[in-house]
């Protein structure tokens, strides 16, 4: 059994006040749970569901519908590389191969040391500076193999 810290419970209660219903606080509460527990484990769903009074089946349905909720543990740093058309025509596929060959990082996979996970993204709104990726919450644009090396060096 995992539980939220008192600070987090307060945070979710504050979020709850922004909406006319508890249910509306579900998406933000799942984000908070993900931040607190690292991923949305079955226990995390129970904790969110108890706190908001939303049925667990609903919480899970929502948590598995959206691409940005993590339903399995991921690496310490999440590399989110866009491969949609604007990035693709400027070489994003080559970068996917590069991450695989140099870092052993497969799409949807995690490195053996748990340092990185790779998630292939559908357009992250950086098309004018393609190819682009997010590492955790940080944007990186105009990517090349060399630049990716420099960026990943910062994330231990």
């Amino acid at each position: 059994m995992i539980t939220f810290s008192q600070t987090t419970i307060k945070e979710i209660e504050e979020i709850r006040r922004k909406y006319p219903t508890s249910r509306a606080a579900l998406l933000p509460a799942l984000y908070v749970a993900q931040r607190e527990f690292g991923w949305l484990s079955p226990e995390a769903y129970t904790a969110v569901s108890d706190l908001l009074g939303v049925p667990e089946a609903i919480a899970r349905g929502v948590g598995t519908f959206y691409a940005m909720y993590r339903n399995k543990p991921l690496g310490r740093h999440v590399v989110q590389l866009c491969t949609n058309v604007s990035c693709m025509i400027l070489g994003a596929e080559r970068l996917v191969d590069f991450l695989k060959n140099k870092y052993g990082l497969e799409p949807g996979g995690t490195t053996a040391d748990g340092r990185f996970s790779l998630v292939i993204m559908e357009c992250i709104g950086a098309c004018g500076t393609a190819p682009a990726m997010l590492v955790n919450d940080d944007f990186y644009e105009n990517l090349t193999e060399k630049y990716i090396d420099e960026i990943l060096e910062k994330y231990r």
Binding site: N84, V85, S86, E122, C123, G125, A126, C127, G128
Partner: peptide, 11 residues
Amino acid sequence: DEGEPGTFKDR
């Protein structure tokens, strides 16, 4: 929710 691929005008 600017998600249409190619779109980065609202950002």
